[in-house]
């Protein structure tokens, strides 16, 4: 393999129900930086059916070229049609870098492709850079978040990684950007389409996306079952969303879609209230990039205080109702 045969930074522009996902725009912004450093192009790979202006949105977020694959097989994600499409594109066009969002789709598709192509894949990256040797440096958390590892894939191409949603900043769309849209035809092998999707169920309780919230009021073990109503009350007064640590989700007080850290989400709101959260490593990894963190906890040695900008040693079940009452009064 000659590395020089491989060029350009490709982004899998994940869409659901025809809507390009924010993580794809976040990746296009990062890909723009990487490609500028390399002096190469950003290529969005858009798979779907009747996607309207999705290609233009990819250009507005940084793509030079959009490879538009429009086929009924690709309307909704299933592993094999998507893997066949991207595999053909990789084989024919030889990208240097391919980025996926670390979503349930990207984490299903990425490894399948890495094995098909025979190249490396680095999961859940939180930072991407180009080295002096023009290799991709992929940094990811290990051991639940406190050890960071920088991974390289020197001898294989493409270099592939999945990137956590919400970690890269999404830059605003620039509608005046110009780019090229190329329609690509895939030679599918339908004999390999072996799963049958019988039903797709949206659970309305999951529709809230805590990664989009500007302010999060997050509760942990110290809040307890009764305290969550108080948190919701406080969140309501300042237009915040409620989120929680894993303990609260496991205990069934709140749905998994609102969990921060490890198997939950990575968030970086302007303000994060950590209420009664002691701060397990996994939780800290999911929220420590927040712009400002206010923590309230009884235990002054709780690890949450190591990341908090403002720490209050005290009882959340006293402080939260008082705070909500003051906010309502003013």
């Amino acid at each position: 393999m000659d590395k020089n045969d491989y060029k350009d930074v490709y982004v899998f522009a994940e869409q659901r129900d025809g809507k390009v996902q924010n993580v794809a725009f976040e990746l296009l912004g990062k890909a723009r930086e990487l490609a500028d450093k390399l002096g190469e192009k950003v290529v969005a790979v858009l798979l779907g059916h009747n996607l309207g202006d999705a290609a233009q949105q990819c250009i507005a977020h940084g793509a030079d070229v959009v490879l538009n694959v429009d086929a009924p097989e690709l309307e909704h994600y299933t592993t094999e049609p998507y893997a066949q499409a991207i595999h053909q594109i990789i084989r024919e066009r030889k990208p240097s870098i391919v980025l996926f969002g670390a979503t349930t789709i990207g984490r299903d598709l990425g490894p399948r492709l890495s094995a098909r192509v025979g190249t490396g894949l680095t999961a859940d990256c939180t930072a991407l850079e180009i080295s002096d040797d023009r290799d991709l440096l992929m940094t990811r958390p290990a051991f639940g978040g406190n050890l960071m590892a920088t991974i390289v894939c020197k001898e294989h191409r493409p270099q592939m990684s999945t990137v956590r949603p919400g970690v890269m900043r999404m830059s605003p769309a620039d509608e005046s950007r110009k780019g090229e849209v190329e329609n690509v035809k895939i030679d599918f092998n339908p004999a390999k389409f072996r799963v049958r999707v019988k039903e797709r169920v949206k659970e309305t309780k999951n529709l809230v996306d805590i990664t989009e919230a500007k302010v999060l009021v997050s509760g942990g073990r110290g809040v307890g079952s009764a305290g969550f109503d108080k948190l919701r009350d406080l969140a309501g007064t300042i237009g915040a969303e409620v989120s929680a640590s894993r303990a609260m989700v496991d205990a069934g007080y709140i749905e998994h879609a609102r969990q921060v850290g490890q198997t939950g989400k990575t968030v970086r709101p302007d303000l994060y209230f950590a209420l009664g959260i002691s701060g397990a490593i996994q939780h800290l990894a999911g929220m420590e990039e927040s712009d400002f963190i206010i923590a309230v906890n009884k235990d002054k040695f709780a690890p949450i205080f190591s990341v908090a900008d403002l720490g209050i040693v005290g009882d959340v079940n006293k402080i939260v109702p008082l705070l909500a009452a003051r906010l309502k009064r003013d």
Binding site: G118, T119, G120, L121, T122, L137, P141, A142, G145, N146, L147, M148, A149, T150, I151, V152, C153, K154, E155, H156, E288, I293, K300, F305, S306, V307, A308, D309, L310, G311, I312, V313, G314, D315, K318, I319, L322
Partner: peptide
């Protein structure tokens, strides 16, 4: 293995913020 760990490091600790131990 196509991928290698180039380096690993403990995450940088953030400068501690202000901590108050006061009445509610």
């Amino acid at each position: 293995s196509p991928t290698r760990v180039a380096k690993s490091f403990a995450k940088g600790m953030k400068a501690p913020g202000q901590l108050y131990e006061v009445e509610p």
